[in-house]
Design a protein around this nucleic acid. Structure first.
Lengths: 358, 358
DNA sequence: GAACGCTGTTGAAACCTTTCATAGCCTTCC
DNA sequence: GGAAGGCTATGAAAGGTTTCAACAGCGTTC
């Protein structure tokens, strides 16, 4: 080798910057245990094929090195994730956390874990989470969508990520859905109010981009028509979200009306709205149900404990979640899976807020 | 399974499943766009270094192939995750979802996403989630722990996953913590009750493995002692969890006592317990606050809307979450990060459940 | 017209794990 | 005594992305 060559190829210590300096990998464990790489992997994934002695050595090495399996690498190679995500509309609404509980129940039974995400009724966040979850290659996505016609949502299944829509019944699509008949729920609520003799009935809900809001209103209208009255008689108070705060705002508006034009009953698109409405109206001096009867929707745990126990439309919350998760699991494991649309029937629970104290 | 799930018989409609997934990777995109692999990666990660023309070609190819970046591979190579997790005690408790809201706010501002997990007050689930999250190599973990001495928790930071403890103040450890002074909160509650002249005061809470439960009780005892009474005067009703249902159970027990031995006031470890207790006691004929005054803890949104508006100890929920997330972000990006212990001060909000209608 | 700098692009290595065909060793059985 | 077969352990390949040194063009400067 000439001097020139030495000049041309200077000796260099190339140190690649390793991102996680401290991580001990399978390789290190194998070395420490005096076995091969594959054996370590076997201990991890098929412990029964490894002899007890070897297994003990490997496990000891893992413990002493503080080995933590790199799930990214596992997933990259093995192709499958052990995670299932539930993208919910609003984590602050106990209805959805109850659904989530059902999801976790089913997932746990199948050995999977659940990540919860919340779109907070914001379409952009929903979209961002969908992208993220797809990139993460989760096993599947459960979603209570804001925009059920989103093309993103439609495309997911064809690209390999199963989707189950929760609390919405989608027409023909490429996913399963689990829902409650919200139109019927709306009818139940309004029929009840009509039976009690109410004439001026308000519907409180919004925004109208949310399917549940629209369906429940539709049910309300139908009930009016069934009773021989025009659907347009329904007094609509549109809210910006389904929250207690918005309910209070609606209460403010409602209580501000002159008594002869004010509705005598209000049906709210969910219990949060109803609770806010109730609270505001009571604090402004309206009597419930004498001046204003209120019907909520979901029958969350707090509905019964409210200032005036709330009449509400009950849905099988946990069952909804459990069923959805089960459909998702079937879709991702059963090659003969058929998409299903499961619809539960809601039920009216009558309490003081409409019936008064008998 | 909860009561509401009793016997719901859904309708099911079945449909044939649409076929198969398919995955297009960077390689396929490169081929389709007639560029090299590295260029596609540049479009993804450093679009500004790619010429507009090339970029357009690549983007077109991505769109037409339905390319979805494989996050596992990205993370494996790049070493960093864009995700942050909040492992909470109970998703059904609005307190924690409010904290979560604060977390998301801060995370979003930093361009990160949040996955929510729930341990449901189960130490095994907590442990399982911690393992999972560590394996996923999330950017960091926010946790409201069940067992704050868990060795798992202690070891995480040294292995490269930053941890911030939320709603608990850990002694000097290897993580930051953000908490509210729960001992003070307990004192506030009991002093208030003592000022109102109550003698027989109950503390409702449990299990005693939960730090918050213990601290709040400790505060209660101190307040008694400060008032010159033995701490042992505190009547303890231990519950199995911090839920509405457990609160009802405690109410049952309490209402069953003969009036001359029954406490005249109850301080509950959180609002869910208080609401359950309130509901049960009222339905069993006790008047609140005349027969039994009730103080809750957290001042969740539903406390004010309860049958009898609830006196409660308020905590800065969202701020708690936001601060915690900010500490975590600092820890994972700032090399000079120093662990901190942030403690907020709670505040008593007096309402009808103790003061009566004035 | 040679050297230089700049811009955009390239190709191969590296990340860490799982998979799988194969090899080595022991028993068992003809 | 040798073939067959059962256990275990092995080593190399594969999986999709990012990274980075090197390179190709091309215009500029001296």
């Amino acid at each position: 080798m000439s001097v020139d060559d030495a000049e041309a190829l200077p000796e260099r210590t190339r140190r690649r910057r390793t991102p996680k300096p401290h991580a001990a990998g399978v390789k290190a464990v194998a070395a420490a245990a005096g076995v091969s790489l594959g054996t370590v992997s076997n201990v991890l994934n098929r412990p029964e094929v490894v002899s007890p002695l070897t297994r003990a050595k490997v496990e000891a090495a893992m413990a002493s090195l503080g080995f933590v399996r790199n799930e990214s690498a596992r997933q990259l190679r093995a192709g499958s994730s052990r995670i299932l995500a539930y993208l919910m509309l609003d984590a602050g609404n106990p209805f959805f956390t109850d659904v989530a509980k059902g999801v976790e129940e089913a997932a746990q039974a199948a050995g999977l874990s659940v990540f919860l995400c919340t779109s907070s009724e914001d379409a952009d966040r929903e979209a961002a989470y969908l992208d993220l979850l797809e990139q993460q290659r989760v096993q599947g996505i459960l979603i209570t969508p804001i925009d059920q016609n989103s093309s993103r949502l439609r495309k997911l299944p064809s690209r390999g990520t199963p989707v189950v829509v929760v609390d919405r019944a989608l027409d023909e699509g490429e996913h399963c859905s689990v829902a409650v008949n919200d139109v019927l729920g709306g009818e139940l609520a309004i029929s009840h109010l009509l039976e009690l003799g109410h004439e001026r009935i308000a519907y409180v809900g919004g925004p109208n981009t949310i399917g549940q809001v629209v369906d429940r209103r539709e049910g309300a209208r139908r009930a009016l028509e069934t009773a021989g009255r025009p659907a347009a008689d329904l007094i609509e108070l549109t809210t910006g979200a389904l929250t207690v705060a918005e309910g209070r705002g609606a209460g403010q508006r409602l209580a501000g009306l002159p008594a002869d034009r004010r509705p005598t009953a209000a049906f709210c698109a969910n219990d949060l709205l109803a609770l806010g409405l109730l609270q505001q109206c009571v604090s402004l001096g309206l009597r419930v149900p004498e001046d204003l009867a209120i019907v909520g929707y979901d029958d969350i745990e707090f509905a019964e404990a409210a200032a005036v126990p709330l009449t509400s439309v009950r849905q099988p919350r946990q069952l909804l979640g459990r069923t959805a998760a089960e459909l998702l699991l079937d879709e991702s494991s059963n090659p003969d899976h058929e998409h299903q649309r499961v619809t539960f029937t809601p039920e009216l629970v009558v309490r003081t807020s409409t019936r008064g104290t008998l």
